[in-house]
Amino acid sequence: MNEEREQIMMRVRRALSPIQERAALPRYDSEMVVQRAMLAGRDRVELLAERMQRVNGQLFTDVHALVAHLSAQGWKHGYCDPVLWPALAVHFQGFTVELEFDRTRVDDYAFGITRAAGAIAESGTIVLNDTTTSRRLAALTPWVHVAVVERATIFLDVPAAIAGLGPDRNVIWCTGPSKTADVEGILIEGVHGPGVQLALVV
């Protein structure tokens, strides 16, 4: 195994040795990839709502509206992160909500409510990580994912979110529901992950 490592490293060094002057790392400002004009002066939550809508997600700031939406669609059985449940339980009358996620019954859960580590207003993205999000599967396998986002954790733009990745072993950005255009280029949502991506900002 180590032999192969040495072999590859030797070949890399040999390939690079004739290069007189190696390409320098460019100095650039990643501000250039930010759509600053669009962001300037905007409220982060409003902007996040707008940008989520653009990628077919939906943001709620009012828990009643969220519950009414779930109820109207007939999504009455789901999972909720036990840390969130004490504050939410009172609103979910008439729902069946489990606080343990059972991976042998993934099809039983219409929705999964988990905590997000943050969001990115510019791109309409929800940020999940292993420390904050109770179960990777609960945020992925139900048809509806509800991410509970704390207002203070919303990044304005993508470079800021990169700078704020933090020490977590696993961070995932979710920009809208799972989608494909593999069949004749037609957009279909809900391939392997949620077909509906919602956020509740608190």
Binding site: D130, N170, T175
Partner: peptide, 18 residues
């Protein structure tokens, strides 16, 4: 952005069940 952008630095820690 592509829908799912995942940043992985290693195997999961003990706190995460999945």
């Amino acid at each position: 952005l592509t829908v799912y952008t995942e940043f992985i630095t290693g195997p999961k820690t003990a706190e995460q069940p999945d």
